[in-house]
Amino acid sequence: MKTEKLTVFSGVKTFVITLYIPLMSLMVFGGTLSSCTKGNSKNKIEKEVLNIPVLELQPQSVEVPQTYIADIQAIQFVEVRSKVAGFVDRIFVDEGQYVKKGQTLFQLSSTEYSEMVNSARANLAGAKAEQSASKVEIERLEILVNKKIISPSELELAKSKKAVADSQIAEAESMLKNAQTGLSYTTVKAPFDGIVDRIPHKTGSLVTENDLLTSITDISSVFAYYKVNENEYLTFMRNKIEGGADAFSEKLTLFLSDGEMYPHKGKLETTEGDIESGTGSIGFRVRFPNPDNLIKHGASGKIQMMSKLDQVFLIPQKSTFEIQDFTYVYVVDKEDTVKVRSFKPIHRYKNFYIAEGFEPGDRIVFEGIQQVKDGTKVVPQSVAAADVYPDFLGPR
């Protein structure tokens, strides 16, 4: 037994109360406190070991879309300009009208050029008459020379006159041809099948040489021009050498300015002759059919090209975090301890980063990255890859 004295003050009197506390009770109480403390500590340790979903990485072959800004042009686009000056007498077509090759579009005033043709024809006729007279004169003089009635010099003079007449005929023929050409320019015809653009000059307008009358576009097919980097160009060329260029071109899709996918696939036809030194890019040209004339010359759009990447790893975006332009992920080692690791994504597609540099079988924290930090001990809960990766994955 242990005796304790408790002094109690009540007014001016002091009372001493003796307390008898069994020693065994103190020992039991102390043991209970110690047991509670150890239990709480153990529970705290158990709470620090988290159950965390973990994804095991395996290399994949994936096809990801790459988008490029495209400049769309008609397969033929020609500005129709006046070759001679004059007034617009008649307009035979309307804006937006489809025309055939050789169809008359405009008629310019032709009176002046008609007169030039008539004058040239008259000059040609006069030159031919001079030539005929020279021939007759030469024949007459040859008889007289043979009879030795006149000297040969007169015959030579007549032949010289005929040569002058011959040159006048050649000059007159040239002038006639030029006049006829000028007259033909007053009738403006379509250079090929296509659609008439805006007509800026109306009937009665005075146009000078080289004034724009309209434009003709052939949009039965269109060209889409875009640029790729040197590595993508080399991939295409290797596929072409190996006979796979057709398969490569079949993966080209056009998205129009409203974001809608064009229903017809394009075919890659050619590339530019050199790589730009400043950008390291080279231009590609893709032909798209345009049976409904939906796409116009000068339209804008985007080319989407599928690129295949082998032996890469897909990292879910929700498994990553970024600090100052660096991307990080938590890797779980063999002792189930979390280690932070940085990586540089190659591409980002949908909800995934495509990366290299990991090893097959590496485990990363799939969810709950806010609950862990470097050095945290976890209880890994495996996540099935089939539940994580989308349908665009290729064969492993």
Rank of each mutant, 00 (worst) to 15 (best):
F29P: 01
G278C: 02
F77Q: 12
E367P: 10
D391G: 10
L57H: 02
E250N: 15
S220W: 08
R238S: 09
L19Q: 11
E232H: 12
G280S: 00
A163I: 15
L176A: 09
R90Q: 14
V8F: 08
E250R: 15
A190V: 06
L309M: 05
F358Y: 03
V164Q: 12
I169H: 07
S249H: 05
E242P: 03
D218C: 07
E260G: 14
S41P: 01
V196I: 12
G30F: 13
F15V: 13
D362Q: 11
V16L: 09
L55P: 07
S41C: 02
S205R: 09
K227N: 11
S215M: 03
I219C: 01
S215W: 09
G278V: 09
Y98Q: 14
N210L: 12
E356L: 07
D71M: 05
V329M: 01
P289W: 02
V8E: 11
V64N: 03
F326C: 14
V84S: 12
V78E: 09
D218W: 00
S151M: 08
V379P: 06
P191A: 00
F106C: 00
Q103N: 04
V372R: 11
F288P: 06
K202W: 10
Y330P: 02
I149P: 00
T376C: 04
Q58E: 15
S174A: 14
I75R: 05
I354R: 03
A163W: 10
K308Q: 13
D292L: 01
P345Q: 05
S25H: 14
E46W: 02
N51F: 01
L57C: 02
V117R: 06
F255Q: 03
I150S: 01
I138M: 03
S82R: 06
F77D: 01
Q66A: 07
I369M: 07
G11A: 06
A85P: 00
D325V: 04
T3I: 15
I75W: 10
G259V: 04
Q107G: 08
G182V: 06
F248S: 04
C36Q: 14
Y113Q: 00
A247S: 14
K318F: 13
L294Y: 06
P200Q: 09
E95P: 08
Y98W: 14
I323S: 13
I282K: 11
R396E: 15
T271S: 13
G298D: 03
G96T: 07
Q107H: 05
I369E: 05
Q304M: 10
D258K: 02
P263W: 08
I295S: 08
G361T: 01
Y262W: 04
D193S: 11
Q311K: 15
T186D: 05
G126S: 15
D89K: 02
E272P: 06
I143H: 15
L141G: 03
K240N: 14
L155S: 12
L254S: 02
P345T: 00
Y113R: 07
K350F: 07
G357A: 03
N290D: 06
Y330E: 04
L26Q: 03
N290V: 10
G298R: 10
D94H: 14
P53E: 12
V12S: 15
